[in-house]
Design a protein around this nucleic acid. Structure first.
Ligand SMILES: [Mn+2]
Ligand SMILES: [Mn+2]
Ligand SMILES: [Mn+2]
Ligand SMILES: [Mn+2]
Lengths: 217, 217
DNA sequence: ATATATTTTTAGACTAGGCTAAAAATAATT
DNA sequence: AATTATTTTTAGCCTAGTCTAAAAATATAT
């Protein structure tokens, strides 16, 4: 049985591996977990002992198959609970992450799968992230950041990179909502800000904002 | 912010105070928590430090007003989640307690109150126990154990004292279900077993069983 | 190739929450 | 009232998970 801390570390390694496919470093994980490198070394030893990661001293680490399955199961729970909170309890998309951080650690496969059924097997969570099924499978959704788009690109706003309440509330305030139709009209060379058309409104978004919004073309 | 362990101790003290209204002893709580008296002394000091209980060395302890409110809030969450699991996710009444033991520690007042609303403000949980409202109020339901009844007594089976899976499954097997109409037909002097009529069936129940079933007359 | 900088690990400390064994306080019996 | 039994607390040890500071390994730059 894994502790909350072990589960949180696994999840963080999973997310880091997407940008660091050749292995995660102690410092990278320390930064992600907002903790110290020495604490990571200790935890990494525990996870390695439990066969959740492959680790060679000084050489970084990677999730094992077992660790990968475990991490995906936690992410599945996190995202299902987020859907529950939004769809059934009328939470807004900026309120759910914090609560889901707690709910993702509830240990009951039966609960997870019954919740999945109760929600009619949702495929994406309130932030556009894919929800793994019971077997851990989920599609890799093709998407690029607004900030990487070319002028003229069109598509649908289908997800956020940052899902902090402050960013999500900012999007709400600017009527930038999931599944909106988007067209990149102009890119300012000076500050990389974008002029976009979104749901027939024309607005400016900063580079920082653009680099946290995903477009599916 | 309380730890799981602190919350579990508070809950146990709350339940013990039902039968020990003049204060709970270290040993009584150790037995209830299936731990050692020395561990209880340590925990009691922490809870006292946090003003959750009133404690004088060697003299036992009692929940403070604040401790009482905190314990009731946890019990409210436990019972609401049990209702959710049965009503919405089709768990059976013997499966919910273990999962609710985890869910009761989720910290979000908003979640608790939205869940309450989603469930249409249920008054009792799947085992017949009353659910405190947002302000911590709940009715004291008048009920007596079958084992304390007299021959001829009639009423409704409205709750269980023991809610362990093994006991609940035993009740299921014998078609003893909540809200059944009951009449005490006979009491055997030898072993205190009862002959009862329940939903128009006549069955025998042992003293042990009878002392875990509540009747409302 | 050597010196310097960076990263990673180790060593030792601290807190929370358990434990056992012994001491101290209280309760029960003679 | 004194002795014995029980209950409660203390003292000291353990593990998990964090920290700081120092040592060791690796990477970078002369
Ligand atoms: Mn989230
Ligand atoms: Mn999400
Ligand atoms: Mn229960
Ligand atoms: Mn219950």
């Amino acid at each position: 049985m894994l502790t909350f801390s072990e589960e949180n570390h696994l999840k963080a390694i999973f997310h880091l591996e997407r940008t660091l496919p050749n292995g995660v470093s102690t410092n990278a994980l320390a930064k992600e977990m907002e903790t110290k490198a020495s604490s990571i070394t200790d935890m990494i030893k525990k996870l390695s002992e439990k066969k959740l990661i492959n680790y060679k001293k000084y050489k970084g680490f990677k999730l094992s198959q077992f660790g990968m399955e475990t991490a995906i199961a936690i992410i599945r729970k996190h995202r299902l609970w987020e859907v529950f909170l939004v769809e059934k309890l009328n939470f807004s998309w900026d309120e759910v992450h914090e609560v889901a951080e707690q709910l993702e650690h509830i240990k009951s496969e039966k609960l997870t799968n019954k919740l999945d059924a109760f929600l009619s097997y949702p495929k994406i969570d309130p932030h556009g992230d894919p929800i793994p099924d019971e077997d851990g499978n989920f599609p890799k959704i093709a998407k690029i950041l607004f900030s990487e788009c070319q002028v003229g690109d069109e598509g649908t706003f289908i997800g956020v990179k940052d899902s902090s309440p402050i960013f999500l509330q900012f999007l709400d305030k600017n009527n930038i909502c999931l599944n909106a139709k988007v067209k990149i009209l102009q890119k300012e060379a000076f500050d990389l800000s974008l002029k976009i058309e979104i749901n027939n409104n024309t607005i400016m978004v900063s580079h920082k904002t653009a680099s946290n919004l995903y477009l599916q073309s």
